[in-house]
């Protein structure tokens, strides 16, 4: 494992930034660390890089304690709040970081040219960073993070400040890194970029990991079934709880055939729309049998996996 943490904890006075974080990230994996602002994502990255000392717990990256100079030459990092010296040119900036990584002059020249081309800044090699737009600074930051051919890269909000095209390029870059066997720890609150790039995801909320697993695994257990039924008695509606949790329950605005000649007057044939959160789509046949057995008429029964965004929103709305 390239990253391993055990009960990692960080507090600032009475405020808990990270609570008992235990996770492991393997070689070549793209790991998404998702959470709203203030969830403890950046603090976690700082602890993994040795920039912040944990209050409790242990962490190891590349088999060594975070920040150990013996391994930091194989680690790349793009901070969330990347501040650049405005007086330096793009090429000199990369050259200085290459020197700090202990790279030889010839290698620095080769890598600088290759990375400037890779992030679309080849024609701005001799421009001062003070003249760069926010998106261009983010690109040079990415180049800096990849300069030393790292085995493990921490990207903290890498698409922040980028336009849609830039975001797309970053996603391609992350895929390339995965193809090269580089492990990527991606901190982000852009769910779409996590969804298309990450192998596994941890969702953090108020310093705690509340979901952890492969994307498919997380969403498999986050399925909704949309029902449109008529003739649902109150008892049958109560009985739905055995299959899952009713998320929404509303009139559909559609009317079914009248029953017993009373129909519209009693509302007995009103088609209701019910959305249920269930453990998986395999409950659908049993649920259909239950409703039929209870005398309800099924107009629709549609299982649907949640997108990562919907899962994220649901998790954020849950009480902890």
């Amino acid at each position: 494992m390239l990253i391993e943490t055990h009960d990692l904890r960080k507090t600032y006075g009475p405020t808990v930034a990270v609570e008992r974080l235990t996770l492991s990230v393997g070689a070549g994996e793209v790991f998404g660390f998702l959470g709203p602002n203030g969830a403890g994502k950046t603090t976690t990255v700082k602890m993994l890089l040795g920039l912040a000392a944990p209050t409790a717990g242990q962490a190891r990256i590349l088999g060594r304690p975070p920040g150990d100079p013996a391994i930091m030459g194989r680690v790349g990092f793009l901070p969330e709040q990347f501040r650049f010296p405005p007086w330096i040119t793009a090429a000199d900036f990369l050259d200085i970081h290459g020197r700090l990584c202990g790279m030889a002059a010839a290698e620095r020249r080769t890598r600088t040219a290759a990375l400037l081309a890779r992030v679309g800044l080849a024609d701005r090699a001799n421009s001062r960073l003070g003249e760069f737009s926010k998106g261009m600074l983010q690109r040079i930051g990415l180049a800096q993070a990849l300069l030393n051919r790292p085995a493990l890269v921490f990207l903290d909000e890498p698409t922040s400040g980028l336009d849609p095209l830039g975001r797309h390029e970053v996603r391609d870059l992350i895929r390339e890194l995965r193809g090269d066997g580089v492990t990527v720890f991606l901190n982000s609150h852009f769910l779409s970029e996590v969804e298309v790039t990450c192998d596994r995801v941890a969702i953090v909320k108020r310093g705690r990991v509340v979901r952890l697993g492969a994307l498919d695994e997380l969403t498999r257990h986050a399925t909704e079934i949309e029902l449109r039924v008529a003739g649902l008695t109150p008892e049958a509606a109560t009985g739905l709880a055995q299959w899952g949790r009713v998320v929404r329950d509303q009139e559909s605005g559609i009317r079914g055939p009248e029953a017993g000649g009373r129909g519209q007057e009693t509302g007995a044939t009103e088609v209701v729309r019910i959305v249920m959160a269930v453990a998986g789509e395999d409950v659908a046949p049993a649920l259909a049998a239950y409703l039929t057995g209870a005398g309800a008429q099924i107009y629709a029964l549609a299982p649907r996996r949640l997108s990562l965004e919907e899962l994220f929103m649901r998790v954020m709305q849950e009480e902890t």
Partner: peptide, 12 residues
């Protein structure tokens, strides 16, 4: 400013 972070995460 946070500028120190990219320096402090180098192998030194």
């Amino acid at each position: 400013s946070g500028a120190i972070q990219t320096i402090a995460t180098k192998p030194l």
